[in-house]
């Protein structure tokens, strides 16, 4: 009897073994992860590695790739348009991100109180962010700022907003600032987590509203501000759609965003190898920028307990 059981333990049938493996917690876990893992491999990791390879090639998409070493990278730094696009994108990110974060914070402060209507307002203010990335809003924006558009009609102006180098980039920055919703929601939820006891103590000490804001609210929000700043900066440096749809990089390349230039090189001019190199340079720039932001963290972000 005993030996029979032992034998059975030693050699379970194939079906049984398969069943056991299948029933393991980890198996179920892997199966659930699989869609993501496959997606990550197919749409992120493999393209990423391919583009690294292509960045070292002369490659026109249509035909085969020819290995040329780091020539593309050398060309990048000699390319005037690269510097132009980098400047435009940097300006856009540096101006629009803080504006957007500040705007989100102000609206969040207004909407933090819980009344019956605030959820509706929050939803309304979030709406532009939902629509924001869409082509439809970009086209709407283009119409509004056209020479015969709504803005000129309302204010009785005659300005070619999208046709002048001084104004075109600001139209795009405005669109970006208008899409402050996601930052706002994060601010709202964090504002709610600030203990009211702190404000009560401050009131007892006779602090004014403004002192409350600068001494309590703002310091406790700095981690959130930091998070928003990092996320929005990365998005800002990779901006594409608004430049592609609204201005196409014009006038005189004053809205030629980096990603747009990369796209043009790759698809419009069939220099996919060069485009890939531009992409990798952008990755390095974004990584550096983020690293610098993290370095500044210790000077202004409050990370202590409450």
């Amino acid at each position: 009897m005993k030996t029979a059981i032992a034998e059975k333990k030693k050699k379970p049938g194939i079906g049984e073994r398969a069943y056991k493996t299948l029933m393991k917690e980890s198996t179920a876990g892997f199966v659930f992860c699989l869609p993501f893992i496959l997606g990550f491999l197919l749409f992120i990791l493999i393209p990423l590695l391919l583009s690294l390879y292509y960045s070292l090639c002369k490659y026109n998409i249509v035909g085969g790739a020819q290995f040329i070493g780091i020539q593309n990278y050398l060309d990048v730094f000699k390319d005037d348009k690269f510097w132009k696009a980098l400047g435009v994108t940097g300006f856009y990110a540096v101006v629009s991100v803080p504006l957007r974060v500040i705007f989100a914070l102000i609206v969040a402060l207004l909407l933090v109180r819980d009344t019956k209507v605030t959820p509706i307002y929050r939803a309304m203010y979030y709406l532009p962010s939902l629509l924001g990335a869409s082509v439809a809003v970009a086209i709407l924006w283009k119409q509004m700022f056209a020479y015969d558009g709504l803005i000129n009609a309302i204010f009785g102006l005659k300005i070619a907003w999208l046709g002048e180098t001084d104004t075109a980039i600001w139209v795009l920055i405005l669109l970006s600032v208008w899409q402050f919703g996601s930052s706002m929601l994060i601010f709202v939820s964090n504002l709610k987590q600030i203990p009211s006891s702190l404000y009560e103590a401050a009131r007892v000490d006779g602090a004014s509203g403004i002192q409350n804001f600068f001494r309590i609210t703002l310091p406790l929000l700095t981690p959130t501000i930091f998070f928003n700043l990092v996320m929005q900066s990365i998005n800002g440096l990779m901006v594409f759609a608004s430049g592609q749809i609204i201005t196409g990089g014009k006038p005189l390349d004053s809205t030629l965003f980096y990603a747009l230039y990369m796209y043009n090189q790759t698809f419009a001019y069939n220099n996919a190898g060069y485009g890939s190199a531009l992409g990798w340079v952008l990755i390095v720039i974004v990584a550096l920028y983020t690293a610098i932001l993290f370095k500044t963290k210790k000077f202004w972000v409050y990370e202590g307990g409450l």
Binding site: A146, Y147, A160, L162, G163, P251
Partner: peptide, 8 residues
């Protein structure tokens, strides 16, 4: 005006 042409 080139501005008008561009924005068109």
């Amino acid at each position: 005006d080139q501005g008008i042409q561009t924005s068109n």
